[in-house]
Write a protein that binds this DNA or RNA. Structure first.
Length: 198
DNA sequence: AGAGTGATCATG
DNA sequence: ATGATCACTCTC
């Protein structure tokens, strides 16, 4: 029996959510196939004060619309003309903060993941990056604004199979443009896990 | 280390 | 309208 992550659990500050999301499972039933993976790497985006966030300065645009929705909403965006990245909206209602899911350890549906990701030849290449995992789980802009708490296509479950792994913390990836915010240790990962990006 | 790729956003 | 940018990935 699957136990969903509740909305209240996600309605906390994004740093706490980013850290505690590690070890939980993201499930996709997109394309009629069940694929899932344990979250092994995340990044927190802190909203208006955070120069690296899409909602820096309180910006409200068409792209970041769902980042302003209530916690538990999926925020999916498209970058570099070819990649999708997926976030879990966190925080109090109306607070534009989110957690980027950066890497998963594949759990179910590896076969479908290999089909969707032609570049991958080993399990560690399936979901070891924010755009890789979206490709592996078939997440696209269609999922932007989806309900990760009550939805059926894409959702989070509570399982934490590996309680022993240590949590590491460091600066976020690819946010060099963000000045002093680039150095903030807002990236979290399970130390030593081979499915972490890079 | 460099290219690919096109939506998005701020300027005007 | 236009141009620079980009919370990345792959291949060299």
């Amino acid at each position: 029996m699957e136990s969903r992550l509740s909305r209240g659990w996600l309605e906390r500050d994004p740093v706490t959510v980013a850290r505690e999301l590690l070890g939980r499972t993201l499930v996709s039933t997109l394309g009629g196939v069940r694929t899932s993976g344990r979250i092994v790497e995340t990044e927190a985006y802190l909203g208006a004060p955070d120069r690296a966030a899409h909602t820096f300065g309180g910006r409200r645009t068409e792209r970041n619309r769902s980042m302003w929705e209530r916690a538990g909403t999926g925020y999916v965006y498209f970058v570099y003309g070819m990649h999708h990245c997926m976030n879990v909206v966190a925080g109090a209602e109306g607070e534009p903060v989110a957690v980027l899911v950066r890497a998963l350890e594949p759990r179910e549906g590896a076969e479908a993941m290999y089909e969707r990701r032609s570049a991958a030849s080993r399990p560690e290449e399936l979901c070891s990056g924010p755009a890789k995992l979206c490709q592996a789980l078939a997440i696209t802009l269609d999922q932007d604004g989806c309900d990760l708490v009550g939805g059926e296509q894409l959702y989070l479950i509570d399982s934490r199979p590996d309680v022993s792994a240590a949590i590491a913390r460091g600066p976020r990836i690819g946010v060099d443009y963000a000045g002093e915010w680039a150095a903030e240790p807002l990236r979290f990962w399970l130390a030593g896990n081979p499915h972490v990006s890079r």
